[in-house]
Amino acid sequence: MIAFQGVSVVYPNGVTALRNLDLKIEKGDFLFLVGPTGSGKSTILKLIYREEVCTSGRIIVAGKEITGISRRQIPYLRRGIGVVFQDFKLLTRRTAWDNVAFALHVIGVGRTEVKRQTAKALDSVGLLHKADALPTELSAGEQQRVCIARAIVNNPVILVADEPTGNLDPDTSWDIVQLLSRINIKGTTVIMATHDRSIVDRMRKRVIALQNGRLVRDEDKGAYIGEL
């Protein structure tokens, strides 16, 4: 589903964020990216939805080499990838419903289909009853659910989450991860960058640890800290 081959990223300011990274993620995987701050987790996620471009190496997403794709092809790549953020990035003047529907509208989906899919996505995050609420009227956990609904409304094959529980209390965080896990079970590949040790340790999923832009550990059913 996703493959990184000898990927390095050097930012324009000279910071090397990734060094010669090799990584393979299969369809339907649930994967945690862990590592100290600045180790390159967000950079990996940004490479996947092509917010960033690698300096050297090859990246394959959904069977397609994306290293050299043109600007015009980027939107079509992104339609297959849902993205969830730590800060939600919801439109504050629009309702939960509109925030989710927006993602379909702007890629040209027809009105009836928008309705159907939006209702389905909000329902699957358990927020259909708050469809008319503005983000300010929702709790942080609920806002993150709206964000997740927006990310999955287009039925992406990959879901990328950058510290989705970073702003949430432990119980809410666990709910959110459970939600991601349910989405994963339906077949979506989920990649989540996190600093949340208890979640990683409880989930026992594949863990990839980074340090200073290098992959230092890759284990199935792993933990936040490697077992030595």
């Binding site: 600007r71 015009r72 079509y76 992104r78 339609r79 990035k89 439109l91 927006f102 702007v106 890629i107």
Partner: peptide
């Protein structure tokens, strides 16, 4: 810009934006 940003992330084409 926030809306544009989200539009770009969910795969809206430049023309649509």
């Amino acid at each position: 810009r926030k809306e544009i940003r989200i539009m770009q992330l969910v795969g809206a084409t430049d023309w649509f934006i």
